[in-house]
């Protein structure tokens, strides 16, 4: 569906120019929810704007559904944009228009007749759950409702691709979840390809199938969300994964338990997919003569399955602990020694 090959984007000319996107090649399948994560300034905003021609690449090609976005201009580009719509962090609604009129705006642009427009707008209002708010102005809506208007507006011309530019970054956690559910729902119901950029791993974990990690204009890591969670390669990816799997409290808990029980080994068990449902721990305790202290446990559900971590303190003879860890490996559970003495 989306095909980027060796895309570069530089701003400015000569020695003062800044490279925003460097040598990015990507392949995004139809119906996929693809996440791009990176800190601010990583180039993800520029990258997503290359997909609808709001920015043109300095070199390389951007193709969507067989159409080369980076090669078309004028009317052809405007027409292509109707099929690659976008939602924004700050919603970008027209405050001078009601909910209904905002959603109808892209239809006006596409030259849809009034009767047809009204039918479509009513349908979209229903889809995003804004019934009863048709005639409200954006100033009368909450952040979540505004983003729902943004989504309805983006869907008005039956796009093939939906681009989400930090669509949930201005929302509180609860509203974020409801918007993410709506996006998943739309993806499943309409078979829409969704590309989203974010700096929150939580968003990637919750709805994405695949993820690309961006740093300094380059895609440094790419893969299925579950695989990336399980085995992040780059330092930056590890940091993003920690956002979800190891909140600040855990780090404090680890520090605390190290002080409390200076004798044992702290290990992290990583369960993926079906392993999360097996009683590995029970048999571990039964088989080996060690004391097991549970420090922290966590299961994250991603699109590809569950991903769990369990922090244990093992107290006992060193060779028994080694055998126990070996047993875990045999059971296909990954371990990571956090700290021992």
């Amino acid at each position: 569906m989306i095909h980027l090959s060796d895309v570069n984007k530089r701003f400015g000319i000569g020695t003062t120019s800044i490279s925003a996107v460097e040598g990015v090649s990507l392949e995004i399948a139809k119906g996929e929810i693809f996440g791009i994560i990176g800190y601010s300034g990583a180039g993800k905003s520029t990258l997503i704007r290359l997909l609808n021609g709001l920015e043109m690449p300095t070199s390389g090609s951007v193709k969507i559904g067989g159409r080369e976005i980076s090669a078309i201009r004028g009317g052809e580009l405007r027409e292509a944009r109707q099929k690659v719509s976008m939602i924004f962090q700050h919603f970008n609604l027209l405050w001078s228009r009601t909910v209904k009129e905002n959603i109808g705006f892209p239809l006006e642009i596409a030259g849809v007749r009034k009767v047809e427009r009204e039918r479509k707008v009513a349908e979209l209002i229903e889809l995003v759950g804004l019934s009863g708010r048709e005639n409200a102005y954006p100033s009368e809506l909450s952040g979540g409702q505004k983003q729902r208007v943004g989504i309805a507006r983006a869907l008005a011309n039956d796009p093939e691709v939906l681009l989400c530019d930090e669509a949930t970054s201005a929302l509180d956690p609860e509203t974020t979840d409801s918007i993410l559910n709506l996006l998943t729902d739309i993806n499943e119901r309409l078979g829409l390809t969704i590309v989203l950029i974010t700096h929150e791993m939580h968003v990637i974990r919750k709805i994405c199938h695949r993820v690309a990690v961006m740093e300094a204009g380059k895609v440094v890591e790419i893969g299925n969300v579950l695989d990336v969670f399980q085995a992040p390669r780059e330092a930056i990816t590890k940091r993003f994964v920690l956002q979800v799997t190891e909140p600040v409290e855990t780090r404090q808990a680890i520090a605390h338990i190290k002080e409390e029980y200076p004798s044992g080994s702290l290990i992290k068990l990583i369960f993926v997919g079906e392993r999360t449902e097996q009683p590995v721990l029970a048999s571990l305790i039964r088989k080996y003569d060690i004391d097991v202290n549970i420090v922290q446990g966590n299961i994250s559900h991603t699109h590809g399955g569950a991903y769990g971590t369990l922090l244990l303190q093992l107290v006992g003879d060193a060779d028994v602990i080694a055998k126990a860890i070996n047993y875990l490996h045999e059971e296909d559970v990954k371990t990571e020694v956090i700290g021992s003495d």
Binding site: N52, L54, L77, R78, E79, A80, R81, Q82, S85, M86, F88, H90, N92, L93, L94, F105, P106, I109, A110, R153, N157, L163
Partner: peptide, 11 residues
């Protein structure tokens, strides 16, 4: 952002 949104709709 509002102008950008209109552009992104093909206005």
């Amino acid at each position: 952002g509002v102008i950008e949104a209109a552009k992104s709709m093909g206005a």
